[in-house]
Design a protein around this nucleic acid. Structure first.
Lengths: 341, 341
DNA sequence: ATTTTGTGTTAAAACGTTTTAGAGTTATAT
DNA sequence: ATATAACTCTAAAACGTTTTAACACAAAAT
């Protein structure tokens, strides 16, 4: 019990009275190229439409060695940022005649590896990956094995792959400058403990802006461990509540921002009176929270489309393409949470 | 430029000195069944592992007529409910050796149709669909064409398909009873203008509970048009603010709840003092809002897994399976927003 | 008159797998 | 001895597509 699927090239060929080779050529738009007669071309086209011919993807794939399938591995599809990214990638791919199959690594290199293998087994032509912590070697290996691959959202500076990401340093420099302009001086940067380049870049942007403002001695970066970050945050903020060593917080990811709000909420720390807040990636929570939370808005759609475009260009060109990194510009959405009262 | 992919059955066959037919049998675990010798079996297995053999999915698919691909069409992947559903479906499918390809219909039957065709072209073995408004005929057609199909989250009572959904009437009956127990009497049910069964069921549950409580005259159902629901809600709530004709609101979907919160927020209507609120599907917004918003929690994971299980069982069984509808039980998460002060 | 050129078409092979029918041995039963 | 069964294995076909080499025929050039 499955899809009924019948009409083949042969059926059309028989109906029209030509060979299936001819039908194939016509249906692939190569009638001119192969010098097929007008008459035959017309009849084949008509019959194909009449019978609602749909090429058998398996046969075509087997013959051509191409599947027109793209793999996508995101960190976590239940995170709205990745969900929207996935949707955009799916759309862009579909416009180019490709289908996307995907999975979430849940930030675990083991899962990433399994997934990549699954995708490779499914015969994807290329792959779009949001790499996770400790996956540098894995990515590097796959890259050397000539996987057609684009890294998105994150990349490794030491592996020369195609990539599309945010200009993370600029984003955090802008945020920091905005807070400084508002008059906040003791700005704390809340981040994960991570060696991923986009994380360190975000920290760098913050740090540089602080130093440029002559507030190098106020630089305070919280690098929370991935597992226990909620408790850690609780502890640190509790401490802060007493000692007042921060007047503003920058959260470096969407999930950190949300977790941070839970904690601030729980501790009854007022925003922005007790501490100003700047988050990442937005979402309904940011708008509905009182006060509304300022955030860095990433050009998600553009990011997805760009990744698809450069991957497919790579796949379809004969000469190897130039390897390029694309860095997209962030936008700040500024609301009450980051304005001095 | 694509994946390198080499080792075939023939390679193993040559290396070991047997036919590729034998290799195929062994690697499919049919050595016993075909009476292959111990020696040969052992050697083939070893060589396959050594060469890291991966079957060519296209060839297998072509030969068998099965792709081990499942299609999934959700209403909107950027809605966390569907994102989590999708992830769970992907996981469950993967455990059974299937891969999922998906897309969002954006609640538009046109998109749904296009997507279903795309998926069919990709040769999916079966399909999991969250049907949208006005898609009953389309689904019915496809069903008659023997598409192997499971409806999830929603279904049409007149089409006898496999389906997995919430017991929607019970969910809303429970919610209404909870609010009644709290002492709320003028409960308004906020819903979309929709003919989808899950919507009417939700309304029915509310209505029945009201009637059982002898409050039939208080029944008030808002059926907002899909496009302009934000403005409509604003208008209605503004009116309510003046005339005080509701002391509690039940929002029948996640997005309605969130939009409702935007509106209540904007109008400075206090929850639960001015009006109690009960929502659907949860999410961070619900927990972080002040006050935290009560909601109906759906067993999303179970829903996804069940859909996959019954679809694959259907696909892999020779006799046609019994067509069954599964209705899962809701759980209420009760917080301040629905408690009488 | 024969070769060349051009035009429109097809037969056949190939992609990698699975399965069917049966081949070649050896062992057992008549 | 001979037929029969039992045990291992293989050749070949099939799935539907794309592409290459070549064929048949006509028109043009030698």
């Amino acid at each position: 019990m499955a899809f009924k699927k019948k009409v083949s090239l042969k059926d059309i060929a028989q109906a029209v009275g030509v060979s299936s080779a001819l039908v194939s050529m016509v249906l692939n738009g190569k009638a001119k190229q192969y010098g097929i007669g007008e008459e035959a071309t017309r009849k084949v086209l008509a019959k194909a439409k009449e019978l609602n011919y749909q090429p058998n993807i398996m046969a075509r794939g087997l013959r051509s060695g191409k599947s027109h399938l793209l793999g996508l591995v995101v960190a976590d599809i239940s995170n709205p940022f990745f969900a929207i990214l996935a949707r955009e990638i799916e759309r862009a791919a579909s416009e180019r005649g490709y289908t996307v199959i995907y999975g979430s690594s849940d930030e675990q290199p083991g899962h990433l590896c399994t997934l990549m293998n699954t995708l490779a087994n499914q015969g994807v032509d290329g792959i779009i990956v949001v790499p996770c912590e400790n996956s540098e070697d894995l990515i590097s290996d796959l890259y050397l094995q000539k996987y057609a691959m684009v890294l998105v959202d994150r990349f490794f500076p030491n592996i020369n792959t195609l990539s599309v990401s945010l200009d993370n340093a600029k984003a955090c420099r802008d945020v920091t400058q905005h807070l400084l302009n508002q008059g906040f001086k003791r700005i704390t940067f809340v981040s994960y403990e991570s060696e991923l380049y986009h994380t360190t870049e975000r920290i760098r942007g913050y740090r540089e802006a602080m130093q440029e403002a002559g507030l190098g001695q106020n630089v305070n970066v919280l690098e929370l461990p991935q597992e226990k970050y909620h408790e850690m945050m609780l502890q640190v903020f509790e401490d802060n509540q007493i000692n007042k060593n921060s007047d503003a917080l920058i959260f470096s990811t969407n999930s950190l921002t949300i977790q941070g709000l839970y904690v601030l909420n729980q501790l009854k720390i007022r925003i922005p009176e007790d501490v100003a807040v700047f988050g990442f990636d937005g979402g309904d929570v940011f708008h509905l929270y009182s006060p509304a939370i300022s955030y860095v808005k990433q050009p998600v759609e553009e990011m997805g489309r760009k990744a698809v475009t450069i991957l497919i260009d790579q796949l379809e060109s004969d000469e190897p393409q130039e390897i390029k990194r694309y860095e997209l510009k962030p936008e700040l959405v500024i609301t009450e949470s980051s304005l001095k009262k």
